[in-house]
Design a protein around this nucleic acid. Structure first.
Length: 687
RNA sequence: GCUGGUGUAGCUCAAGGGUAGAGCAUCGGUUUUGUAAACCGGUGGUUGUGGGUUCAAUUCCCAUCGCCAGCUCCA
């Protein structure tokens, strides 16, 4: 029982010893430093000492006169501390309510915190969450101070053993020799923990448990499944309320919900994770492709069209067979299927992913018959490059491809449009000389900046994803060279980047471009990857000015990435309110009464001839109802047509809930036509 | 793939061992409307699919598929 444990531990968690002084170096806590300077405020959660964020409990070795700043509870740096402490309070509550439950780890995360528990035989229900939350509130109200203590390794082991905390024992064994083995206690509850923590439980206002889910011990699917409880915490109830509102906003923008409501796309269980684009969605999709094509036309790209299904030999050459086979759909002819069926009696459909059973059944046909649906365009482009004798004068050769790709994604990972099994990308491969790489990457930055600006995506953040630990092609030296080129290109554009260690593709390092959407969430969209490997594998060469063969470099790049995934981001970014240049309809005309229908139909027809996408709602609903039902599809403009508008040959225009006033036919055409192209393509305003 | 949840009309949701109901949408009619929901009436379901238990299953059990959350994965 928790209380018995705490009783036994009272001595172990003693106050820290008085600070030893060694010359000008002393060992003191941030609390002492702040007190000495009279800067400890009632709302101080932690401190910044020497540039490091530390809690008030942990003894530090600092020099005399070190700089110390208090962190108040509403400082962003306090948030992870508050959340981590809240995780402790939750674990306390769980062990009070469910004795025998073992604790494991409970970190703070971006959206809050979680704690993983091993609860024998039991799972936590929503009711349990309510009870846990209530108990947590009691613990918070008790205003119990957090106390830090240090034990020897043997003491710690005995203690955890007595508590039956087997997972904590495993964590203890992982703590390197020489490091302090610290425990934190609040009230009667104690936990092996390195901190940091808030001074007392009263700092944990605005606490909310959000969900429960399974999670593997140490993220390893071979190890026990634990019960993870997620929650979030803020310095105040008010801040929590704001956060809950933000979540609600995100739910309201969920592209799966909007996709249905706005009739953009659908799914069917006979093609799992494969979107069907309905006419409105297909319009947006095609408009995006048209926009990118226009960009390509001005930037020297050439678009190609390539096959869907290839002999296994292609994938063996490219390395996908070895590195990516489990994610590929295989396609077989009837004869191969018959061979497999006869040999093994395994029922097969025409297209499927490779699992062990199927793999065994197919063993006899692998050699000759196996084909793969393309999961990437690059190998095709290599074949195209290699099909002719290439001159250095042709480089850089930029081959763009909107080809449809199929990737087998495991059933649990698919998600709306953002993770699907079939999609196409605004994909292109640039074949160039090593000398041209810098200029090509630089040119790509220009393209990227213009596209993101046109789409209203801000705050482009760049990550450099480096060589994975294993399963990569080529030599370490080649990788390092490529990583250097990418880093130099970013710096050459006066931009900064962060490393994403080990996150590179198996064939090369990449830059990832992350943008922030309208409600502050970050998404990876674009990427550019250096690849020395595929040209090697496909033995691609060009004839240089010196009349000898040289190996080209390949750059893989995409601006929007998967168009499907981009649409999911863009729908949520705009909440379904597409700008006129990307909206399936630009103006919906609603009539005041059916006297006006004939005029409205005529006006809409003339608008369409003039290049404006206009429709008419001629139903016999009242005007209010028509405006409402038109609004549900979120068109950029709605135009009201009544007697006055028939008279003036135009419409009373509204945008959302705003009345824009009367627009005659010519003015309306001029306005909407001007907005029918991407912002970067519009004529600059006169004057 | 794993853990848990879930699947009822086109959509959002009720009900429930004795073959299901609302609102909206759709259809028909009345109304002729001035800036976010007029009124009346009708149609619409093998309750995801396949087995099992039972006199009886949509309800209980098993399997399977889809979806949702999380884990793992994301070339």
């Amino acid at each position: 029982m928790t209380h018995a444990i705490a009783g036994a531990n009272t001595h172990a968690v003693a106050a820290a010893p008085p600070p030893p002084r060694e010359g000008s170096i002393m060992k003191v806590t941030a609390r002492q430093l702040l007190q000495d300077r009279n800067r400890l405020a009632p709302n101080t959660v932690a401190a910044v000492v020497d540039g490091r964020t530390v809690d008030l409990h942990t003894p530090l070795e600092v020099a005399d006169g070190v700089e110390v700043k208090a962190i108040p509870s509403d400082d962003p740096r306090a948030l992870p501390i508050i959340r981590h402490s809240t995780a402790h309070v939750m674990a306390d509550a769980v062990q009070r309510l469910f004795p025998g439950t073992k604790v494991t780890i409970g970190p703070s995360i971006d959206s809050g915190f979680y704690y993983d528990f091993d609860r024998q035989g039991g799972r936590f229900t929503d009711d349990d969450l309510g009870r846990i939350e209530a108990t947590m509130k009691e613990i918070v109200a008790a205003d119990a101070p957090f106390v830090r203590g240090v034990m020897s390794r043997d003491e710690a082991r005995q203690k955890l053993d007595a508590m039956g905390e087997t997972y904590k024992l495993e964590i203890l064994d992982g703590i390197p020799a020489g490091e302090d083995i610290s425990f934190y206690q609040h009230g009667a509850w104690i936990d092996l923990c390195e901190g940091p923590h808030v001074p007392s439980t009263k700092f944990l206002q605005g606490v909310k448990l959000t969900s429960v889910a399974g999670a593997y011990w140490r993220g390893d699917e071979r190890r026990p499944m634990l019960q993870r409880i997620y929650g979030t915490a803020f310095p105040s109830q008010k801040a929590l309320d704001a956060h809950m509102k933000q979540l609600e906003e995100a739910r309201a923008r969920d592209h799966r919900k909007l996709g249905k409501e706005l009739k953009l796309f659908m799914f069917h269980e006979w093609a799992p994770a494969s979107p069907f684009f309905l006419p409105r969605g297909a319009w947006v999709y095609n408009a995006l492709v048209a926009y990118v094509r226009e960009q390509y036309a001005r930037r020297g790209y050439a678009e190609v069209i390539t096959p869907q299904i290839f002999d296994k030999a292609l994938w063996e050459t490219s390395g996908h067979w070895e590195n990516y086979r489990d994610n590929m759909f295989l396609a077989l002819g009837t004869d191969a299927l018959e061979t497999a069926r006869e040999g093994h009696g395994v029922p097969l459909s025409g297209v499927f992913a490779l699992d062990e059973k199927v793999s065994t059944a197919l063993a006899p046909v692998h050699a000759n018959y196996m084909c793969g649906c393309k999961a990437m365009n690059c190998p095709s482009h290599c074949l195209m490059f290699g099909a002719e004798r290439r001159s250095y004068r042709e480089l850089p050769l930029r081959l763009a491809d909107f080809g449809r790709l199929h990737r087998y994604e495991r059933s649990g990972v698919t998600h709306g449009l953002s993770r699907v099994r079939t999609f196409s990308q605004d994909d292109a491969h640039i074949f160039c000389t090593p000398d041209q790489m810098g200029a090509e990457i630089s040119g790509f930055f220009d393209l990227l900046d213009e596209v993101y600006a046109d789409l209203g995506m801000r705050d482009v953040k760049i990550l450099l994803a480096t060589r994975p630990d294993q399963g990569y092609l080529g030599s370490v030296e080649t990788w390092e060279r490529a990583e250097q080129i990418l880093a130099d290109a970013v710096l050459g554009k006066n931009r900064t980047f962060e490393f994403a260690k080990g996150e590179g593709a198996f064939y090369g390092p990449k830059l990832e471009f992350h943008v922030t959407d309208a409600i502050g969430r970050s998404w990876q969209l674009g990427t550019i990857q250096v690849d020395f490997n595929l040209p090697e594998r496909f033995d691609l060469t060009y004839v240089g000015a010196d009349n000898t063969a040289h190996r080209p470099v390949m750059l893989h790049r995409a601006v929007l990435g998967s168009l499907e995934r981009f649409l999911s981001v863009y729908i949520e970014h705009t909440a379904g309110w597409f700008p006129a240049w990307l909206s399936p309809e630009q103006v919906v005309l609603v009539t005041v009464s059916d006297k006006h229908v004939a005029f409205a139909e005529d006006l809409a027809a003339r608008l369409r001839v003039a290049g404006v996408r206009a429709t008419v709602d001629a139903s016999n609903d009242k005007l209010n109802a028509k405006i409402r039902s038109a609004s549900l599809l979120r068109p950029p403009y709605i135009g009201v047509v009544g007697d006055k508008e028939v008279e003036g040959d135009g419409t009373q225009l509204r945008q959302g809930r705003t009345d824009l006033g009367f627009f005659g036919f010519d003015a309306l055409v001029a306005k909407i036509r001007a907005e029918s192209v991407a912002p970067s393509r519009r004529a600059p305003a006169a004057g």
